[in-house]
Every structure is written in C-alpha cells, then in structure tokens.
Simulated assay, not measured.
Amino acid sequence: MTGWLAIIGLAIVAFLAGLLLLKGHRQLWTLLAAVLVFGLAGYAWQGSPSYPAAPAEAMENGPQGNPALVDARREFFSEADVPAHFITVADGFARKGDFERAAQILQQVVAEDPDNGEAWLALSIALTEHARGRLTKPAVFALQRSYETLKDSPAPAFFDGVNALRTGDAPTARDIWADALAASDEDTPGHAFLAERVAGIDQLIDAVMAQQQGVTLPPVAPPAAPAAAGPQPE
C-alpha cells in the first residue's frame, strides 16, 4: 500500500510540474493526465510497488530541483510588485538549478529585511529544492515566516500544498489550496492560477481513481475446465 501511495504521489507531482509548464495550454492537461494514468495502469499490471527499492547513488552533477517554481512564485505577485534586487539575483541562480547559491543570497535578504514576505517564500523554496524536495526545518521556518508576512496572499499555501504533494498526500494538498482560494478575493494575484491547479489536481485524482477501479486481475479458470481459446479479457 505504501508503494502505491508513493507511485500515485509521484504521478501527482509530475502532473503538477506539467501544469506549471503548460499554463495557458489547458487542452493539453487531459493528454498529460491520460499519459500518467496509462503509466499507472502499466505499473499496476507489471510493477511491484510492495517490493523494497534497490539502493541508488545520488546524482551529484546537474541542476537540482525545479526552476519552474520560480515562475510559479511570481504568479502570486503583480507585475508592479517588483521583487528586491537580490531576490532577482537569487532567482537567476535558481533558474539555473543552483538553489544552494540562491538560498545563501536569500538568507542575507531576510536578515536585512525580515518583513520581506516574498524573500521568505523564495528562501523556503530554494532550501526545499536544494534538499531535492525534502522539507527541512529551515525550509519549514521560512515557509511559516512567509505565511506571517504574506497574510493576504495564497502564495505560501500554494507551496505548502506542493510540499504535501511531494509526500503523496494529495487530499491534504487539495484542502490547503481550497482553503487558500476561499480566503482570497478573485482579484488577488495568483487566485486564478491556484484555481486552475485545483481543477488540474481534481482531474488527475479522478482519473487515477477511475483507473484503479478499472484495473482487475484476469479471471482464473476452474481446474477441471479446459483452457479457453482466444484473447483473454483485460
């Protein structure tokens, strides 16, 4: 069961990443969901989610994390709300996958301006991405500070939901997002962006549940009966 939760969680995270990258192309969401569900169906038939995973070496080279999260963060701020200079500098490193350097710069920003909510949120994202999706104590602290300094913005809740998705807890993620939507006005920056993501995760969850209900084991013939010819039922 734990293996299935992890697989479904990975599918939801992949779908979330697709929503971030395919914003404005809603016609592709159904195709993306179909591809992921097809993969889940194949894994249900041939995979072994209950088996322990083999140890793997961590990748030391190449970019870390997901630079698209920088663009997602900016969805919750108006174009007139230009970020501080060093936040922009940190974003440049984050877009290249260097979240360690981004976090170092952002730590200096919040030290000098502890009321800068976007800096706290960017720091939480950078720390989480540098840890390859693991929510560390410093990242949790930075996220909490972003909640305190961005009281009228759904931005902290969005990334709180992203963190829940990464653990495979889609219901919690959806609840966080739905509560943030209900608490924010429609003209709040990021409200429409978050509403679309809620619709997207609902679409994927419905597709996964439908696929799970449709995946059944092939029937076993009675011992005395001869083997049936022809194609077997799916």
Rank of each mutant, 00 (worst) to 15 (best):
K137Y: 07
A139G: 07
V140W: 01
V140E: 15
F141K: 15
A142N: 06
L143Y: 01
Q144P: 01
Q144V: 07
Q144M: 11
Q144K: 12
Q144L: 12
R145A: 15
S146C: 06
T149N: 15
T149A: 15
T149R: 15
K151P: 06
D152V: 13
D152G: 13
S153R: 15
S153N: 14
S153H: 13
P154Q: 08
P154S: 14
P154R: 08
A155Q: 10
P156W: 04
A157W: 02
A157R: 03
A157E: 07
F158R: 03
F159T: 07
F159S: 04
F159G: 08
F159Y: 10
G161L: 02
V162W: 09
N163C: 01
N163M: 05
A164P: 00
A164K: 12
A164V: 00
L165P: 02
G168A: 06
D169Y: 06
A170P: 01
A170E: 06
A170F: 00
A170V: 10
A170L: 05
P171C: 04
T172F: 00
A173F: 03
A173T: 04
A173D: 01
R174E: 00
D175G: 02
I176H: 03
I176M: 02
W177T: 02
A178F: 03
A178M: 12
A180Q: 10
A180R: 06
L181Y: 08
L181I: 13
A182C: 04
A182L: 14
A183V: 08
A183S: 14
E186I: 13
E186W: 09
D187I: 09
D187W: 06
D187C: 05
T188N: 09
T188I: 10
P189T: 10
P189K: 09
H191C: 10
H191R: 12
A192K: 15
A192R: 15
F193N: 09
E196L: 14
R197I: 03
R197K: 11
R197D: 02
V198T: 05
G200M: 10
I201H: 04
I201S: 07
D202P: 00
D202V: 00
L204M: 14
I205K: 00
I205A: 05
D206L: 01
D206S: 03
V208T: 04
V208K: 03
A210H: 11
A210S: 14
A210I: 12
Q211P: 00
Q211F: 03
Q213I: 07
V215S: 12
V215G: 05
T216I: 14
L217S: 14
P218M: 12
P219Q: 07
P219K: 08
A221K: 07
A221S: 13
P222H: 13
P223G: 02
P223L: 13
P223I: 06
P223S: 11
P223C: 09
A224L: 07
A225C: 03
A225E: 13
A225F: 12
P226F: 08
A227G: 07
A227H: 12
A228K: 14
A228M: 10
A229V: 11
A229L: 14
A229G: 15
A229M: 10
